[in-house]
Write a protein that binds this DNA or RNA. Structure first.
Lengths: 144, 144
DNA sequence: CGCATATGAGACCGAATCGGTCCTGTATAG
DNA sequence: CTATACAGGACCGATTCGGTCTCATATGCG
């Protein structure tokens, strides 16, 4: 149930950008800073831009820029842009594709679990990820 | 970030068994009832037994039996048995394997998110999955 | 005793997905 | 008009995943 590496990288890149939301970043610059292969970073930036999380500026001195404030972009947004809709189970995303749908009586309750996990990812912003542990206090109550 | 199909199947099988925890089930019988290929079910049962979630009885009239009560087996247990340790990110499971570990400042906070998701899966038992929506009330507060 | 049943362990394979690269086109700054 | 930088998409190798099969072992029953 792990995140894909690409989605993981994307969160790292987005958080770096969120630390200085007013700057524009080129893909190659970010790749150098983060220690990731430039072509891979370029691909990710395109995905993030197409999803509306980044604004792209073409031409010389162009680059990427956060489309919204770091407090208004969630982990769920980033994951969805790279990996598609987040979710633990198939049938909550592509209904009708599961051959068991008739018999299994747990689909509805899986949906509840699924929604809870997604909501947790939606509740964490890039700003919080860049902050200290205190910034994550809201999530801690999930562990009580 | 989806669960593997095998892990998904395993939850279905385990919940079927949890509905009648006193019975023993053979792999082929369960496969027939659930509409899954017998060899695949057999493989899953072995994994679940090795993880200590099922007790196996060999020989004629043998089969599998829940090792504990349905209220004492969680989704996290089942997932771990099939897919290995649950977790969204690599570096919280295999520290030292991520090349970015030096620079990325979000590892600690990812750990918090990760722990929250795992805890959510640990908090749901097979018994709850078999119950009505009311049985999941504990999880709903994650969405508030 | 001996056979049928059922699990234990693990090798094995095809297919799909994933991580990563490259090429061509387009827009903008200087 | 040239260098820079994004847009789109094709492409490929490697890994993982879903699924099957074989052989060994243990038990119940006739």
């Amino acid at each position: 149930m792990r995140l894909s590496k690409l989605a993981d990288y994307a969160t790292v890149l987005m958080c770096r950008m969120a630390a200085r939301p007013e700057l524009t970043y080129s893909a190659s610059q970010l790749a150098g800073e983060a220690g990731l292969p430039p072509p891979t970073v370029a691909k990710l930036m395109k995905l993030l831009a197409r999803a509306g999380l980044l604004t792209s500026l073409r031409g010389g001195r162009g680059g990427y820029l956060l489309a919204r404030g770091p407090e208004a972009i969630s982990l769920a947004d980033v994951i969805r842009a790279v990996d598609g809709p987040p979710g633990l189970i198939e049938c909550s995303i592509h209904p009708g594709r599961c051959s068991l749908e008739g018999g299994c009586g747990i689909r509805a309750n899986w949906g509840v679990v699924n929604a809870a996990v997604i909501q947790a990812l939606r509740d964490v912003s890039l700003e919080q990820m860049n902050g200290g542990p205190a910034a994550m206090a809201g999530l801690r109550r999930l562990r009580d």
